[in-house]
Nucleic acid binder design. Structure first.
Lengths: 207, 207
DNA sequence: CCACGTTTTCGACCCTTAGGCGAAAACTGG
DNA sequence: CCAGTTTTCGCCTAAGGGTCGAAAACGTGG
């Protein structure tokens, strides 16, 4: 989600939402406030720190140190945004202001890897979904196709997916009705990768 | 590595090295400068951003937003440090200033997980090492014992370990001389965990 | 110099998890 | 009732980690 800058520097160019840090808030409270002020995005399903961007010349004319965040919104939600704000497909972005291109690139990398070893999919998916819908979400987020069969089995085996019992009606072309699922837990859960470092008894990493 | 604060606030308490951001440097250049100024640590084998700590009251009396870093030094190096600075075992830390306890905790978690799915061990290990020495390093960093057999095979299979051909002399109690190894590449290399999200052809994540 | 304790190394076997394929199931439309 | 579609499920294979125990290579003490 980008909005078009009104003022210099980089007027009229698309940029990530953000703003200055207030005296009584930390950076996460700040970015949530910025989003709530400038655009109507209250349904953030996940927010996490990405990185600090602090190159001296990243904003012409003044020194700005930015803490970039990765924020996710479920796919079923289409927040109303002001006229200067719009959603863009991450594969076809317009020219962006400052170093925002690099921030977006880093954000996408973070999303891709966290989709692999966490249940972060819950933040992208609606409350209920079919496996094929989830497959499309994952494919879009990752940038390459994933197998629906595998996705279901892997997520199930990790205990992240549970059936609701309901089914979704088939499409116009027919087909077997798809079973509906939901994510087992809200909030992030990490499935620790690799076992070299797994304690002999099977405890998790750094309790 | 901690040093004892000379001035208020939190005088005489142990704290992480750090300092203000200069006008002509980014945060990474800054932390490297701080380390070079205050203590003689030029052999940093790895430096990465950890997180921003920005709670309004984290430093009493003034507003300080800190970008925390994780920095590693190979185990064979014992940098000379000023009299107010000392290395502490991470399992037996003294009382620390501000929120540095939380920073250290986060750093250790990051180190533990990156040891699992990257070759970050290269930053902890000396140029040459035996498998048992590496095993002790990993065990210490992770906080629980790891199997030497497994460690060798896993790292070898990932192509991270290569034999030097030499052997280390046995200890005072005798024993078979241990073969010496080195890490195949300096610089961080990520072995992407889990394969659900691996493209059908085997391409890596986000080229 | 030979038996013994020590440390390292290597191989064998098992288990868990992912990837792929194809058949069966369940539905629509004609 | 039949053809076409979409989903689901089971089976098989491959890869990676976990464990165990035997063999290799060394020092030491009798």
């Amino acid at each position: 989600m980008l909005w078009q800058r009104a003022r210099e520097p980089h007027a009229h160019r698309w940029s990530l939402p953000g703003g200055g840090l207030g005296a009584e808030e930390d950076v996460e409270a700040s970015i949530r406030r910025q989003l709530a002020e400038k655009v109507d995005v209250r349904q953030l399903s996940h927010v996490e720190q990405l990185a600090v961007f602090s190159a001296p010349g990243r904003v012409p004319g003044m020194r700005v140190v930015a803490t970039a965040f990765l924020g996710l919104v479920p796919s079923d939600i289409d927040p109303v945004v002001p006229s200067d704000t719009a959603w863009h497909p991450v594969d076809a972005l317009p020219a962006t202001a400052f170093d925002h291109q690099a921030i977006i690139h880093k954000a996408r990398g973070r999303l891709a890897s966290k989709l692999s070893y966490t249940n972060l999919g819950f933040a992208l998916a609606p409350p209920q979904f079919t496996i094929s819908a989830l497959r499309e979400l994952y494919s879009a987020a990752l940038g390459y196709p994933v197998s629906a069969t595998n996705l279901q089995r892997v997520l199930s085996r990790r205990g992240l997916l549970e059936p609701t019992g309901d089914t979704a009606p088939p499409g116009p072309a027919g087909g077997r009705p798809a079973a509906l699922f939901r994510f087992a837990s809200r909030g992030m859960r990490v499935t620790d990768p690799f076992a070299v470092l797994r304690p002999p008894t099977g405890r998790s990493v750094v309790p």
